[in-house]
């Protein structure tokens, strides 16, 4: 019954169709709040993925370890609430570039952590963020090329246990500062290129919900940034949809190729419909 109520609430979300399918798939495996007591293994994580991938990608072929995309995360994550993950795109192997990257965490109650759209000619080859991981799990990056091919890389993370729960550490602070943003601009490593690095930070509790309150058995309401767009000179660099498993205070660091001197603009929308906007001048990047 609780599941039912939960699903109808999720359906109110713009991404409901995708989520609902995924949650249903995962729900049947888990009975939600981690009723699976045995530790997940590479094999059990893989089984979840096999059941899940049709819901997300239909029957499209997925090329594994082709080198187009690479994913890195610590083998043993120290803090289940903040697991750093790096995704690399090899533009030499995909001359037309990448359209999107989907980040999947098999064992999380909603395994699709986020989908990133990459701007054409934005030159993004590296994206790092931080995610919540509920248990031992594969983290997967599935890149879609401009030509429509799917390429996947995966890495197994042992992230569980102890008292480092995937929850907000300082709830009062998180609510008081929600919506604040910070942008760091790192100059190009090589003076002749225009490739620089940005780091966007957004204050938000980014609660994934999906945990059942052990006291009331109700699900804790989800509250997270579900849409994000970052552009420069009105050209999209990176946008995100989903974001349910992105850590508290969402944090994205990526490289990109600036076009002219136009400012950097950011818009974020959370599951409550709150909109957060900000812009910054592009710092001189050895033009």
């Amino acid at each position: 019954m609780q599941n039912h109520a939960y699903r109808s609430r999720q359906l109110a979300l713009p991404l409901a169709a995708v989520f609902a399918a995924i949650i249903l798939a995962a729900g049947t495996l888990f009975g939600f709040a981690g009723a699976a007591n045995a530790q997940q293994t590479t094999a059990s994580s893989d089984r979840i993925w096999q059941d899940l991938k049709g819901d997300v990608f239909g029957d499209r072929a997925i090329l594994v370890d082709s080198g187009v995309v690479r994913i890195e995360a610590p083998k043993r994550a120290q803090d289940a609430a903040i697991v750093p993950v790096d995704i690399y795109i090899d533009l030499a192997k995909t001359p037309d570039g990448i359209k999107s990257v989907t980040l999947i965490i098999d064992v999380n109650p909603a395994p699709v952590a986020a989908t990133f759209q990459i701007g054409k000619d934005a030159g993004v080859t590296h994206l790092s963020t931080r995610v919540r991981v509920n248990d031992y799990s594969y983290l997967r990056a599935i890149a879609e090329t401009q030509g429509g091919e799917l390429h996947m890389a995966q890495t197994f993370v042992k992230a569980s246990g102890g008292c480092s729960a995937p929850a907000v550490k300082n709830q009062d602070e998180a609510m008081a500062t929600m919506g604040q943003m910070k942008l760091r601009q790192f100059p190009p490593q090589e003076t002749m290129t225009k490739v620089q690095e940005l780091q966007l930070m957004i204050r938000h509790p980014n609660n994934s919900g999906l945990q059942r309150n052990p006291l009331t058995q109700y699900f804790i309401p989800a509250h997270f940034v579900q849409k994000l767009s970052i552009s420069q000179a009105d050209r999209p660099i990176l946008s995100m949809e989903g974001g349910i498993s992105i850590s508290e205070d969402p944090n994205f660091r990526f490289d990109f190729k600036a076009h002219g001197n136009g400012e950097i603009q950011v818009e974020a929308i959370d599951t409550d419909g709150k909109v957060f906007r900000n812009q910054w001048p592009l710092e001189a990047a050895g033009l």
């Binding site: 709040a33 981690g34 007591n37 248990d135 569980s160 709830q171 309150n213 006291l215």
Partner: peptide
């Protein structure tokens, strides 16, 4: 509320 279910699961492991 936010952690109880996780604690019960992860400490069982």
């Amino acid at each position: 509320e936010a952690r109880g279910a996780f604690y019960l699961q992860s400490f069982r492991q």
